[in-house]
Design a protein around this nucleic acid. Structure first.
Lengths: 126, 126
DNA sequence: ATGATAATGATAATGATTATCATTTCTATC
DNA sequence: GATAGAAATGATAATCATTATCATTATCAT
C-alpha cells in the first residue's frame, strides 16, 4: 500500500475536493497557489502512487494523463472537441458486453478506457 | 481531399498490405528497408493527411499513435499488457449503446475509442 | 539515537510529435 | 514548353509531457 505522506495527502485532498480531471501541472500549480508547494516530480510520482493504490482514477488523453477522484462509480468519458468539456457517463450494459467480448477471446480483462469525442450540448447549439 | 503523392502512396500501400498497427517510426524504417526512404517528418504528415482523408485509421495509445488500414469494418481493440499483442473486436450492440448515451446528453458524436487492457489468451496460459 | 528505506526536489534526459525554413516538386495557365 | 504559385519534402530545431538521476531529507522500526 502507499505511504500517505503530507504531499500525497495534499494531492489527494485537492482532487477529492473537486469534480475535475487534473493534469500534473495543474495539481502542482494549485498546490503552489495554496502555499503548499510540491515539486513537479513529486506530483508525478504521487499521482502514480495514488492511482496504483486505487485512491485516484485517470484517463489517458492523446497528449497527457488526467486524474480524478476514485470514490465515484465507474464511468467513461465524453470529451467535447470544441471546448474541452469532459462529461461522464455510466452504462452497465456496455460494461457487461465488454466483459463478454473479452471472455470470448480468452482475454483476462484488467481495465478498459472508453472515450467518446464530439461536440457537447452547448457547443452544438451555437 | 488529399494529394496522393508517391510518398503517401507508398505509406498507404505499406499499411494496406498488412494487418498491423504501425507507428511513424516503424513506417519510416520499413520504407527505408524497401529502398524507398522517406523523411520522418513526411511520414508524420503523410499519416495525418491519410487519416484525415479517411484512408487510414488510428488508435491513440498512452505513448504513441498507431495507424492501420481503414478498409475494414469499424472495430475496437484489446491490448495485451504483457506481450503487446493487439486484438480487434467488433460489437454492434456496444456501438449502438454509445450512440444512445451520447444522444441522451445532447452530444454530437464524431468518434470514439474503446480500448481494453488485459492478458491475452496465450499470455494468461503461461 | 541509529541505520535502513523511501520520499523529495532540482534538473537532466527521453521520446514522440510538431514547427521552421530552405529546397524541390506539382499544377494550372499562358 | 515556360512559368508563377501552391503544396510537399527533408533536415533539424523546438516543444512538451513524462521519467530518470542523484544528492538531500524525512520516516520508521529497532
Amino acid at each position: 500500500m502507499v505511504k500517505l505522506t503530507q504531499h500525497r495527502q495534499a494531492i489527494l485532498d485537492l482532487i477529492n475536493a473537486s469534480n475535475r480531471h487534473w493534469d500534473a501541472d495543474e495539481v502542482a500549480r494549485a498546490l503552489s497557489d495554496a502555499g503548499q508547494s510540491v515539486g513537479i516530480a513529486t506530483v508525478y510520482r504521487g499521482l502514480a502512487a495514488l492511482e496504483a493504490a486505487g485512491l485516484l482514477d485517470s484517463i489517458q488523453l492523446a497528449d497527457k494523463k488526467r486524474y480524478e477522484r476514485a470514490d465515484k462509480a465507474h464511468h467513461d468519458h465524453m470529451i467535447c472537441t470544441e471546448c474541452g468539456h469532459i462529461e461522464e457517463f455510466t452504462h452497465a450494459t456496455i460494461e457487461a458486453l465488454q466483459l463478454v467480448a473479452a471472455q470470448e477471446r480468452g482475454f483476462e480483462l484488467s481495465g478498459h478506457q472508453l472515450t467518446m469525442f464530439g461536440r457537447c450540448k452547448s457547443c452544438s447549439q451555437e
